[in-house]
Design a protein around this nucleic acid. Structure first.
Lengths: 354, 354
DNA sequence: TTGAAAGCGCTAACAC
DNA sequence: GTGTTAGCGCTTTCAA
């Protein structure tokens, strides 16, 4: 834990190698204009002296930091962390480091943003943050920004293709022979933007493609909670012609639906198909078939865009859509078998009712 | 997304305020040796010019970066994230930023470590990483390190007090009137160090304090999996004098135990008490009473230590123990009621058996 | 209390 | 190709 650093500088290397500092610098920055022998020699000296260039000095001289800032709404959700892993992976592949700011509260966003800028990050990845909170007092941001799961003004956005995702879900249910489908989504809010509309569109077009008339579709708007899903499904199942398949916009809702289905005496999978969305950890335990949003991939793409742009300018800043994927478990009807927590024993009353 | 920065420097401020750059710098670093009027005036100019000091230049001149490195084994576990939140909170309170390295694979540790050092972080927080992987080729680390949940050589360690945690668990079970207790833990490994021994000690002393003879205690060593917990409990429950309470070293094991108990026809909570450990998300859904390790607090403390030491030297580098806490749900016997996924309906066959 | 000046370690433009 | 040198923007002596 000593505080003193070896402190071997580029000058030491130059002296030791009998060359100018400029030449050493050129070797360091992989410039072509160095003789092969000289380069070898210098490399050897660097090795011998265990020389490490000083980042701060380099940053100052170059006017950039080789660092990307990441702003996200907290470390609490798994989804964000998957994104972060993708960001991290791509960043370290490109020899960039990351400075991470997790805003537990919305009012921290502004402060963290300016911290990041103050640190002269070369670019910024903003994850699932209300676009209204991200800005530079009307002015353009001083560094390139890419938003993931959020559409910051003037920034490239990486977004899950929610239309495709819900299309996937609905088609899968229809593939199991269901004729009456319900979509359970949530009310619109500023951050989620138009994703609700996208999912609805995906749902409807899947049903059309599957030959289902509009009259057989229902739509319920509820929160992303187990309770809300439960309530919604209860209501729908009590209808004269209840839906036999439920596409939910969140896994939590879907779990509530599972419960309602079980309570109604129906068998999940066989009588009723249920699909979740987001593929959270719990989905696995609930044997819930779900839509996975490729969070890792989005993180990766975001950094890809950023580095690309940093290297060669930002011509286009279109939104790029990332394709979700289908994670098949049992709740859709694909498998009788369930893991440890499988229904029908999963819910109180379910076994009794069946 | 423009690339050009305003670029107002300390020199501009000095000129505009008719003072020397030194004086401006003193104002910036809150030095006392500046006249009150001069300070006010300079502050006003800074405000008007919207001047922001350049971090890289400051870092270079000061020889430090006001940045802490965080090395953790991946973003996948909730426990790590809570720690990370604590780290982040304390760091931003101390005006430090964070560079986060998540090593998905053990072989990435070395590389990330040297990246962090290369970036001249002022200190390093290492979370749950095998101490053997953290080192500087025998030499002392060039920056202060504090380990969380790991004991890196020469570093201060922040560790959960596993003895106290398991004591808490066992005492709670004994408080419910149980006379025969089982401890289910796992085999020792390099990262977990002596925590298994600590838990065992806590367990034994709780039993002694509770007046239970050694002959009434059993100990099973298994992995941290549902299956292992299930197997262990099955075996124990088949004994002539089976334990009536299970203290587990992981929630997953405990869930396996829950299942075995239910399968045996006993009622969880009433006939048999079960405690988990770690308080993972799933514990809530399983109504599992568990021991929470105060991950957030550990993160916070780690940074506290680091900043303290950075400010005034490292005299002591003792290990600091953080007290776990008891999260009461239903599996211990404290409540009949269960939430959505409550037993007895929780497990296949449970209702049928009861 | 304040100004001037000497670096911090590196890059890049410019000569040779 | 390679050496020399002038900054990058800030902190920090050292005089005044």
């Amino acid at each position: 834990m000593s505080q003193d650093r070896p402190k071997v500088t580029i000058r030491d290397v130059a002296r030791e190698a009998n060359v100018g500092v400029g030449t050493v610098s050129r070797v360091l920055s992989r410039s072509a204009n160095v003789g092969a022998e000289t380069r070898q020699h210098i490399l050897a000296v660097i090795e011998r002296l265990a020389y490490e260039p000083n980042r701060a000095a380099r940053n100052l001289a170059r006017g950039r930091t080789d660092t990307l800032g990441v702003l996200l709404p907290s470390f609490t959700r798994h989804y964000f962390l998957d994104i972060l892993r993708g960001v991290q992976t791509a960043a370290s592949e490109g020899d960039y480091s990351l400075t991470v700011f997790a805003a537990d509260r919305p009012d921290q966003v502004k402060g963290y943003l300016s911290s990041a800028l103050k640190q002269r990050v070369d670019g910024l990845v903003v994850i699932s943050v209300d676009p209204a909170l991200v800005g530079n007092d009307g002015a353009e941001m001083p560094v390139p920004v890419v938003g993931i799961d959020t559409q910051v003004e003037g920034a490239t956005s990486i977004l899950p293709d929610h239309a495709a995702g819900m299309y996937l879900a609905a088609r899968h249910l229809i593939g199991h022979g269901h004729k009456r489908l319900a979509l359970i989504d949530r009310p619109q809010d500023p951050v989620s933007g138009n994703q609700i509309a996208a999912r609805r569109a995906g749902f409807v077009s899947a049903c059309h493609d599957g030959g289902l008339p509009d009259s057989q579709l229902s739509l319920e708007i509820h929160d992303y909670t187990v309770e809300a899903g439960h309530k919604a499904a209860r209501r729908l199942l009590a209808l004269d012609e209840p839906p036999t398949a439920f596409a939910c916009a969140s896994d939590m809702q879907a779990i509530g639906v599972l419960r309602a289905v079980a309570e109604s005496g129906r068998t999940i999978g066989r009588d009723v198909g249920v699909m979740g969305y987001h593929n959270v950890d719990l989905a696995e335990y609930a044997c819930l078939t779900s839509i996975h949003l490729s969070a890792f991939e989005m993180g990766r793409q975001a950094v890809g865009r950023l580095l690309e742009g940093l290297a060669s300018g930002f011509d286009e800043r279109a939104a790029v859509q990332v394709m979700p994927s289908l994670i098949v478990r049992a709740s859709c009807g694909c498998a009788e078998e369930s893991r440890l927590f499988g229904w029908p024993g999963f819910f109180p009353g379910a076994s009794a009712g069946a």
